[in-house]
Every structure is written in C-alpha cells, then in structure tokens.
C-alpha cells in the first residue's frame, strides 16, 4: 500500500477577485522507502503539493489518502493528530522553536505524542545527525547547517512514515547542504523512512531516487533513477 495517494488534485487560491490555479489535476502515489524530489520552475506548485501531502492544507478538489486515511474528510484537530504520528517536516528556514534547546526541539514531537522515556531516543537522533555535542544549545547558538540537522532529527522524532522537506538546502552552503542530504539519504536507507523534497537545488536532485517534474500545476514528468 502507498504511504500517500493523491487523486485528481486541484488547488485554487482565491485572493480577492484573482484565482490562481496552483495545481490542476495532479495524481501522485508515494510508496515506502522512496527518496523523491519535486522539481519545476518557481510557481509550478511544488510547495502547494507538499502542503497537501502534509495535511497542512486542503485541496479545492480531489482526494488525499495518507496511510489509507482520507485527509480531505478530516477537521483541523484530526489532521493535527494524523500529522503528529505519520508526517515529519523540514522547512527551508530552520524552523526550530527559538526558546528550546536542540534536545528540547527534538523531544517536542515525542512530548506532543505523549511518549515517555524518550531521552535515549533523542540522543540517538542527535547522534545520527552528528549534533549530540550541541544538545544544550539554543537555535541562535548554532550555525544554519547545525540547525537544519536538528530539524532533520526533529522530523524523525515521531518515527514518521513520511518526511516532507521544502527546499531544505536553500539556505545552506555546498558543504552543509551535502552533509544534510547525506544524513537524510542514510536515514532513508537505514530506517526506510520515505522522504519527499521540493527543490531547485541540483545537489539535492543528485541524491534523488525519483524525480517528479511539475510545470504550471501539472506533473509533466515522473522518472525513476
């Protein structure tokens, strides 16, 4: 069974009188252990698609099945619950909670899930992204690359089936960008967690196992490597 199955998705943004068709009839299946990038020109709908996959947004029409459950029939709280256990996010800006330490940021999804005795798991994750020596640092005491690695660890904290990342390397230099990609690829191999990226970055595309190309709200190419 697919982890995510999008069927005939359209998403129309209406701002005042202006309607923007961000997605026009998209079908997309995401399976286990995938490491997929969404590419395409600016405005082609990559971010919109990720937000629908992450149940942060609702489509104008179409169906979003996550792990077999139809997210389009859910209310806000139910979607929050669905996200909590199944989906992890990594954003372009290292979206850590500024008042919490690296350790506490990684711990947060576990606390939200009501998990207990998670200390060793948090340290394990920080270890996996090579940041265990920064466990007690706050975001503003870390470099961009370090923060993004903490964000990766946090995305993994709820043991999600699917991790969504919107331009995760856009604010990183080559070295840090490749380091973060290496880590994610390794986690993908070792844990089987599915990753879906939206990116313009050729360095990210280089790592992909599958490349989905969007243009003007439609999938125009879907190739496996």
């Amino acid at each position: 069974m697919e982890i995510a199955k999008l069927t005939n998705i359209t998403r129309v943004y209406t701002v005042g009188e202006v309607e923007t068709h961000a997605l026009r009839g998209v079908d997309l299946n995401i399976g286990k252990k995938e490491f997929t990038t969404l590419v395409g020109p600016s405005g082609s709908g990559k971010t919109t698609l990720l937000q629908l996959l992450g149940c942060l947004d609702q489509p104008t029409a179409g169906k979003v099945l996550i792990n077999g459950q139809d997210a389009t029939l859910m209310n806000r709280n139910q979607r929050a619950d669905l996200r909590k256990g199944t989906i992890g996010f990594i954003f372009q800006f290292y979206a850590l909670v500024p008042t919490l330490t690296a350790y506490e940021n990684v711990e947060l999804p576990m606390l939200l899930m009501g998990k207990k005795n998670h200390k060793s798991r948090v340290m394990e994750l920080l270890d996996a992204v090579g940041i265990s020596d920064r466990a007690d640092h706050r975001p503003d005491q870390m470099s961009g690359g370090q923060q993004q690695r903490v964000a990766v660890a946090r995305a993994l904290a709820s043991d999600p089936l699917l991790i969504l990342a919107d331009e995760p390397t856009a604010n990183l230099d080559t070295e840090n960008g490749e380091q973060v990609m290496d880590i994610m690829r390794k986690l993908n191999e070792e844990t089987g967690t599915t990753f879906v990226f939206a990116t313009h970055d050729p360095r990210v595309i280089k790592y992909a196992k599958r490349i989905v190309t969007l243009e003007d709200g439609k999938i125009i190419k879907d190739e496996a490597k």
């Binding site: 992450g54 942060l56 806000r76 709280n77 929050a80 619950d81 996200r83 909590k84 256990g85 996010f89 954003f91 979206a95 850590l96 909670v97 500024p98 947060l108 999804p109 939200l112 899930m113 946090r154 709820s158």
Partner: peptide, 16 residues
C-alpha cells in the same frame, strides 16, 4: 506567528 505554524505542523492542536 511562524512559530505557531511550526508547532501546528508538528501536530500541536489549537487547544494546546
């Protein structure tokens, strides 16, 4: 605001 968005994405509910 952004922080609230992040917390929401992590699965924090409106009530929380």
């Amino acid at each position: 605001t952004r922080e609230m968005g992040i917390l929401g994405a992590l699965g924090m509910k409106a009530r929380q």
